[in-house]
Write a protein that binds this DNA or RNA. Structure first.
Length: 895
RNA sequence: GCUCGCAUGGCGGAAUGGCAGACGCCAUGGACUUAAAAUCCAUUGUCCGAAAGGGCGUGCCGGUUCGAGUCCGGCUGCGAGCACCA
C-alpha cells in the first residue's frame, strides 16, 4: 500500500490524504505526555466509575472480541469527561492462572516471566487502540504489592470464620494436578482443557459463601443488571423453601430427617431414599440386605460424576429398614439410591412417586406402589397413575387435609408438624461453599501456617506431624507472603500441591518451635474478586484502599464484560464485597451498578455444502450420524461438510446455491473464532490496514453491543470510507457563516441523537446519525465552520485520533477532550414542516405536508380533504377518524 | 427435561403501538480514466405493470386494536445457562 496517493484537487491547493498510521501514534504520544486521561481529583465534579472486566493476558495476544467492550466504555468515558464528570477508568491484568504455569512446566520459563511478556503485548495492543485509561492506576494481580492485599482480604475472611478447612470429597483433576470448584467442572470434565475430574476426599480451604446466600439473592434487586444474568445467579444460588420432616425409625433407633418442598404430598409417600453416603445406611440395613447395600454403596460412592451422569436408569437397593410416616403412622421402606445426593438437604428424601418424576421412575423400576394425593380438579384417577403429576392442585386421599389447595396444605401441614415436633420450615440452597484452594504454583499463597510436631528438623526429613487442625494466620505485618522460587513447576502427584516441595519455604522455626506453611494457593478468581476496589486507590501502601476513595468512587457505575462471567466472577466478587462491607471497609451494599455484557464477535460468514467424494449433495439427501458426522440417507456413506468460497455461490431468492451446480444449496453461517477453524481476526492486522479509529468504529457499528455478530472484512471498508470522507471534509475551506435552515436543524438533531445514544450505549445508531450529518455536510457549500466543528466534536469519542487531528487542522489547540460536549436547542430539533400520513382502513393512501405548529384538527381536516384520500373515500361511508396525540398520521375507517 | 434470550431484504442491522427496511455492506448502471483501482452520481424488499399505480411482505397459527415487527395466547427453529437439587 503506497501512502503517496494522488492529491485530490481543492481550493486551497493540495490536500493530504487520511493516514491513520501517522496521526494515531502522534495522538497516543500526546495523550501519554499530557496525562490527558488522569483521573481528576476535584471533588466538586460528579463522579463516574466505568470499568472493563480486566483480561487474562494470554500468550495469543488480543483478539477482536476484546476491543468491543473496551471501545464501548472508552466512548462512554470520553463523552462523560466532555460533559463535566470526573471519570475513573482503569485497566489491569488478571495475571495468575494455569496457562503461564503449564508453559512453565513445559519449558522451565518462570511463570512471572511469561506473564510479564504477555502483559507487555496486551498493553501495547490496547494502547494502539487509543483507549483512554488512566495508566497510572494499572494493577497486576501477581504484583506482590497487590498480592499483599488479596492475602489481607483472605485473613479478614478467616478471622470472621468464613474461611475454614474441610476434608470433603472434592473435584480432583489428575491431569491438571489440582482441585477444581464445582463451577469449574462441566459434565464431569475440567472447564479448562476438558480433563476428567474424579471425586477424592482432600483437605481443602473453603469459603463460607452459603452464609451470604440470602443476601446474594435478595440484593440482586439493587443491581441494574440484565434480567438473564440475575436469573442465572438466582438459579445458581437456588433458594427453595420447604419443610424438614422427621420420620422415626420403626426400631426406635432415632429419626430420619428429610427435606421436601412438597410436604402436602406426605400422604403419598410409599418409600424413602437415602444417599449412599448417608450416616444411617448402616443403621437401617438389615442383616439380610447387608451385602447388597454395602456393594451398592461402595460402587456408588466411587462412581465419578461422569458415570453418574451417563447412567440414565435409576439404580438402588432396599435396606430392609423401615421408618414411620409421621402423619399416617404407616411404616415406609427405606432404600439407598444414588439419585439422592448427600450434599443437598439432609441427604434423604421421602419419595412420592405419584407426584415426582424421579420417584416415579424409581417406583416403576422396583415395583413400588404409586399413590395419588394431588388432583388438578379434585377427581381421583381409577387404578394406577400412568405418569407422575408434578403440578399443583387439590389434595385427595390425604385424610383431614382433603380438598386443600397445594399452597394452603403446605402451610397448614408445616405448622401442624412444627406443633407436634415432627418437623419445621426449612430453606435450602443449591449453592455450596466455595472450594478455595488449588494445588498449584502460580497463585497467591494462602497466608496460613500450622504447628509442626517433630523431634528434629523437618527440612532434613525428620518425622513430623503437621497440625492442620490448628491453622494460624500470618501476621498482617508480614504480608505479602511471597511464592518461593522453584526450578520445577510440575504439580506432581502430591495433593498437598507444588509448594510442598519447597521445603525451606514451607517449614520455619520460631521461638524454638517448628511450623509449616499452607502449601495450597488461591484460585484465579481471588485477584479478580476485588480489583475494582484496588483501582480506587492503587498505590496505597498502608491499606487495600482508603475510606475516602471508597466514599468517592463506589459503586462502579458501569461494568462491561462477557456473559461467561455471569455467575462465577460476579457472584464471588459480590460475596467478598459483602464480607468487606460487614467488616466496615466499604459503604455500599453492591459493587456494580449497571452491568452490560458485550456480545461475541464471530468469524466471517462461511459457506458450506455437503460433499461425497467429488460429488456435491443436498441437505435432504443427508442424515446426521450418532458421532455428530453426516452420512448419505440411502447408502450410508460418510459425507463431509466442506467450505465453499463465497465467489462460487449465488443467491437465488431465499436460498444460496452453487454457481457451478444450481441444484445444490449452500448453507451460510458464522462460527465462533478459533485457532483450529482458522477464522481468528487479529486486531494488529486490522489496525495496520485501516487504523485503530476504523476498527473502533466498525466494531461499534456492527450492531447492538449486546448482540452476537459476525465479522465482515468488507463491512469495515464502509466505516473506513466514512472516516476518509470526514477527513476530506476537514481539509476543505470553511466559512464563518452560521448554519441555517434544514442544516441547522439536522445539526441540533444530531447532537441530541448522538448524546442520547451514547448514554444508552446505542453506539451503532449514534454512528449512523453522524453518517447522515456528514452526507449532508458533504453537499453543503459554503461549509459552515460551526457545523464541521460540531461533527468533529461528536465524532471525538468514537474516532479520537481523527478528531484530535481535525480539531488541530481547524486551528484549535489540543486536546479536544478538554472541549465541552456540544449542546442542542430542543426547539431546533423539530422540522418546520410535518408529513401527515393518511391511512384508510389501515393502508397508507396519501400524505399531506403541514406546518409543524398545525393543530390536530387542522391535520384531520387536511387529511380528509387531500386528493389521494378523496379518491379512496368516494362512495364510502366514514365510520371513524383517529388522530393520535403525536399527530403524525390520520387513520380513517370506512365501509 | 427446566429456565432465559433471539427470529426483519442477498448480508450487518434501524424502527416511544403510528410511513417497515434508517445507516452501512454487497450488487447493478453511469461519470471520471488510455485502462484499472480509488472517488463521485443513481438504482436497489418482492410480485404484476411500458408507466401511472396496485398486490404481497418482519419464522408459523390465532387474538387485542382505527392501526401490530412491536402487545397477548399457542407453535417451530436457533442460541445460551442449568440439569437426578427432593
Amino acid at each position: 500500500m503506497g501512502l503517496a496517493g494522488p492529491c485530490l484537487p481543492c481550493d486551497s491547493g493540495r490536500m493530504e490524504r487520511y493516514t491513520p498510521s501517522l496521526i494515531e501514534p502522534k495522538w497516543q504520544a500526546y495523550w501519554a505526555e499530557h496525562q490527558t486521561f488522569k483521573t481528576p481529583e476535584d471533588p466538586k465534579l460528579p463522579k463516574k466509575y466505568v470499568l472493563d472486566m480486566f483480561p487474562y493476558p494470554s500468550g495469543a495476544g488480543l483478539h477482536v472480541g476484546h476491543p468491543e467492550g473496551y471501545t464501548a466504555t472508552d466512548i462512554y468515558c470520553r463523552y462523560l469527561r466532555a460533559t463535566g464528570h470526573a471519570v475513573l477508568h482503569p485497566m489491569g491484568w488478571d495475571a495468575f492462572g494455569l496457562p503461564a504455569e503449564q508453559y512453565a512446566i513445559q519449558t522451565g520459563t518462570h511463570p512471572a516471566v511469561t506473564t510479564q511478556k504477555n502483559i507487555a503485548t496486551f498493553k501495547r495492543q490496547i494502547m494502539a487502540l487509543g483507549l483512554s485509561y488512566d495508566w497510572d492506576r494499572e494493577v497486576d494481580t501477581t504484583d506482590p504489592a497487590y498480592v499483599k492485599w488479596t492475602q489481607w482480604i483472605f485473613l479478614q475472611l478467616f478471622k470472621r470464620g468464613l474461611a475454614y478447612q474441610s476434608e470433603k470429597p472434592v473435584n480432583w483433576c489428575p491431569a491438571l494436578g489440582t482441585v477444581l470448584a464445582n463451577e469449574e467442572v462441566i459434565d464431569g470434565k475440567s472447564e479448562r482443557g476438558s480433563h476428567p475430574v474424579v471425586r477424592l476426599p482432600l483437605r481443602q480451604w473453603m469459603l463460607r459463601i452459603t452464609a451470604y446466600a440470602d443476601r446474594l439473592v435478595d440484593d440482586l434487586k439493587l443491581a441494574d443488571w440484565p434480567e438473564s444474568t440475575k436469573t442465572m445467579q438466582e438459579e445458581w444460588i437456588g433458594r427453595s423453601e420447604g419443610a424438614e420432616v422427621k420420620f422415626p425409625l420403626v426400631d426406635g433407633n432415632g429419626e430420619l430427617e428429610i427435606f421436601t418442598t412438597r410436604p402436602d404430598t406426605l400422604f403419598g409417600v410409599t418409600f424413602m431414599v437415602i444417599a449412599p453416603e448417608h450416616p444411617f445406611v448402616e443403621r437401617l440395613t438389615t442383616h439380610a440386605q447387608k451385602n447388597a447395600v454395602e456393594a451398592y454403596a461402595h460402587q456408588a460412592i466411587n462412581r465419578s460424576d461422569l458415570d453418574r451422569k451417563a447412567a440414565k436408569e435409576k439404580t438402588g437397593v432396599f435396606t430392609g429398614g423401615f421408618v414411620t410416616n409421621p402423619l399416617t403412622g404407616q411404616p415406609v421402606p427405606v432404600w439407598v439410591a444414588d439419585y439422592v445426593m448427600m450434599g443437598y438437604g439432609t441427604g434423604a428424601i421421602m419419595a412420592v412417586p405419584g407426584h415426582d418424576q424421579r420417584d416415579f421412575e424409581f417406583a416403576r423400576k422396583f415395583g413400588i406402589p404409586v399413590l395419588q394425593v394431588v388432583s388438578a380438579d379434585g377427581t381421583v384417577i381409577d387404578g394406577e397413575m400412568p405418569e407422575a403429576m408434578t403440578e399443583e392442585g387439590v389434595a385427595v386421599n390425604s385424610g383431614p387435609y382433603n380438598g386443600l389447595t397445594t399452597e394452603t396444605f403446605k402451610k397448614k401441614v408445616t405448622q401442624d408438624l412444627e406443633a407436634s415436633g415432627q418437623g419445621k420450615l426449612r430453606v435450602e440452597f443449591r449453592l455450596r461453599d466455595w472450594v478455595f484452594s488449588r494445588q498449584r504454583y502460580w497463585g497467591e499463597p494462602i497466608p496460613i501456617y500450622f504447628p509442626v510436631e517433630t523431634d528434629g528438623d523437618p527440612r532434613q526429613g525428620a518425622a513430623h506431624t503437621i497440625r492442620y487442625d490448628m491453622p494460624m494466620p500470618v501476621d498482617e505485618a508480614e504480608l505479602p507472603l511471597q511464592l518461593p522460587e522453584l526450578e520445577d513447576f510440575n504439580p506432581g502427584e502430591d495433593p498437598a500441591g507444588t509448594l510442598a516441595r519447597a521445603i525451606d519455604w514451607r517449614f520455619f522455626q520460631r521461638d524454638g518451635l517448628w511450623y509449616a506453611r499452607e502449601t495450597n494457593t488461591m484460585p484465579q478468581w481471588a485477584g479478580s474478586c476485588w480489583y475494582y476496589l484496588r483501582f480506587m486507590d492503587p498505590r496505597n501502601p498502608t491499606a487495600a484502599w482508603s475510606q475516602e476513595a471508597a466514599q468517592r468512587w463506589l459503586p462502579v457505575d458501569l461494568y462491561v464484560g462477557g456473559a461467561e462471567h455471569a455467575v462465577l466472577h460476579l457472584l464471588y466478587a459480590r460475596f467478598w464485597h459483602k464480607v468487606l462491607l460487614d467488616a466496615g471497609h466499604l459503604n455500599v451494599p453492591e459493587p456494580f451498578g449497571k452491568l452490560v455484557h458485550q456480545g461475541m464477535i464471530l468469524g466471517e460468514v462461511e459457506y458450506t455444502a455437503f460433499k461425497l467424494g467429488d460429488q456435491f449433495l443436498n441437505r435432504d439427501q443427508i442424515t446426521t450420524n450418532p458421532e455428530g458426522g453426516y452420512q448419505h440417507k440411502e447408502n450410508g456413506a460418510e459425507v463431509l461438510l466442506v467450505r465453499v468460497p463465497e465467489e462460487d455461490t449465488e443467491k437465488k431468492g431465499a436460498t444460496i446455491i452453487l454457481k457451478a451446480n444450481p441444484k445444490i444449496t449452500v448453507e451460510a453461517r458464522a462460527f465462533k473464532m478459533s485457532k483450529s477453524r482458522g477464522n481468528v481476526v487479529n486486531p494488529d492486522e486490522v489496525i495496520l490496514a485501516h487504523g485503530a479509529d476504523a476498527l473502533r468504529l466498525y466494531e461499534m457499528f456492527l450492531g447492538p453491543l449486546e448482540a452476537t455478530k459476525p465479522w465482515s472484512t468488507t463491512g469495515i471498508q464502509g466505516v473506513s470510507r466514512f472516516l476518509e470522507r470526514t477527513w476530506n471534509l476537514g481539509q476543505k475551506p470553511v466559512s464563518d457563516l452560521a448554519p441555517e435552515g434544514d442544516l441547522l436543524r439536522l445539526m441540533h438533531k444530531t447532537i441530541r441523537k448522538v448524546g442520547e445514544d451514547i448514554e444508552a450505549l446505542r453506539l451503532n445508531t449514534a454512528i449512523s446519525a453522524m453518517m447522515i450529518f456528514l452526507n449532508e455536510l458533504a453537499k453543503t457549500e459554503p461549509l459552515p465552520r460551526v457545523a464541521v466543528e460540531t461533527l468533529v466534536r461528536l465524532l471525538h469519542p468514537f474516532a479520537p485520533h481523527l478528531a484530535e487531528e481535525l480539531w488541530e487542522t481547524l486551528s484549535h489547540a489540543p486536546s479536544i477532550q478538554a472541549v465541552p460536549w456540544p449542546t442542542y436547542d430542543p426547539a431546533l430539533c423539530v422540522d418546520e414542516a410535518v408529513t401527515v400520513v393518511v391511512q384508510i382502513n389501515g393502508k397508507v393512501r396519501g400524505r399531506v405536508t403541514l406546518p409543524a405548529d398545525s393543530s390536530l384538527d387542522e391535520r384531520r381536516t387536511a387529511a380528509l380533504a387531500c386528493p389521494d384520500a378523496q379518491s379512496h373515500l368516494a362512495g364510502k361511508e366514514i365510520l371513524k377518524v383517529v388522530v393520535p396525540p403525536n399527530g403524525t398520521l390520520v387513520s380513517i375507517v370506512v365501509k
